[in-house]
Amino acid sequence: MTRPSEARLALIAGIGCYAIWGFIPLVFQSMGAIGADAWEIMAHRMVWSLLLAAALVAALRQWDQVVAALTNRRTLAWLGVSTLLIAVNWTTYVMAVNGGRTLDASLGYYLNPLLNMAAGAWLFRERLSRTGLVAIGLAAVGVALQAAALGHLPWVSLLLGFSFCAYGIIRKKISVDAGPGLFVECLILALPGLAWVLWLTARGAGHFGESAPATLWLLAAGPATVIPMALFAWAARRMPYSSMGFLQFLAPSIVFVIGALQGEPLGALRLVSFGFIWAGAVVFAVGALTRKRGEAPEAAVAPEPGLTDDPAEDPARS
């Protein structure tokens, strides 16, 4: 059982990680304001995340697991695939929020838990409850209405949702703990990231070192990536699964408000489409709470997306 004081801290950590993910578009937009494009932001995110991921592994004393992952060809190959997927996810997200498509990014992460549920039924033969089917159905209607409102498929939202869902599936299948897996992924990403930073510097096109604000913002890419993941991993192992299910909708809700306040187009049909997505999210969360009440109370043990190996709980996002 989780002690009351620890449960409160877990709740604070859970809210903290999703709040950071919710406000992270403002961080990337600030980097864009100093002149950095999505590729430069991603390069610095790759480089500085490695240092914090290394600190996390050191704190957890898991270097032996890192060595085991690096020396196992099959595990390393699958981590290579998961690295590619999370790189696609991160890059798409930065491009979206810095390109006036923050609402699309919000939709992608509303869809994510519903996609995870569908993938669990399809790939892992997990039984879909009636509420699960209703939630997925509502989300499907929302996506269709979104396509009608935009005049094309919401490809940014779908790419974010499906890339992270696929990432979670692979991490679920690999026998590597959260921290070591994240370190290996960051290690793979850091190599091209560092090469890009050095190339920009050689051309005089980089912004690192150009000014104190520019340097600090680019350095912030690492903590902005790893800190919420660490908070998530700590909270998810100490909170009921259903509670994390409710909290995971906090981030896209904040992102949605940011996009709306920044004046992104939100016509009546698009707002209705979000209404269906929100309804699906509510059905999903209520279903999770109902299932949890039917189980014996116990501390939840959850892995990660980036820091959890269960795709139903999604950290390495954004």
Rank of each mutant, 00 (worst) to 15 (best):
M1R: 13
R3Y: 13
P4F: 08
L9F: 07
L9T: 07
A10G: 07
A13H: 08
G14W: 06
I15L: 15
I20R: 04
P25C: 06
M31I: 00
A33M: 14
G35Y: 09
W39S: 11
M42S: 13
S49V: 03
L50E: 03
Q62S: 14
V66Y: 05
V67I: 13
L70Q: 10
T71V: 09
L76W: 09
S82I: 01
S82A: 15
V88Y: 08
V97K: 01
N98D: 07
R101A: 14
T102A: 08
L114P: 00
L114A: 03
N116A: 15
A119T: 00
L128G: 09
R130V: 12
L133S: 03
G137I: 02
G137W: 00
L138H: 04
L138E: 03
L138M: 13
L138K: 03
A147I: 00
L153Y: 12
L159N: 06
L160I: 04
S163D: 01
C165A: 13
C165P: 06
G168Y: 01
I174H: 07
L191F: 14
P192W: 09
L194Y: 11
W196V: 12
L198P: 05
L198F: 14
R203P: 01
L216H: 08
L219V: 12
A221W: 03
T225F: 10
V226F: 04
I227M: 10
A230D: 08
A235H: 10
R237T: 15
R237Y: 03
P240H: 07
F246P: 00
P252C: 12
I254F: 01
I258T: 09
G259K: 05
Q262K: 13
G263L: 10
E264F: 13
A268F: 13
L269F: 12
R270A: 05
F274Y: 15
G275K: 05
W278H: 07
W278L: 15
A281F: 02
V282D: 04
A285H: 02
G287D: 11
A288R: 12
A288L: 10
T290I: 12
T290V: 14
E295N: 02
A300H: 14
A302R: 14
P305R: 08
P305F: 11
G306L: 10
L307V: 12
P311S: 00
E313N: 13
E313L: 14
P315M: 14
A316Q: 09
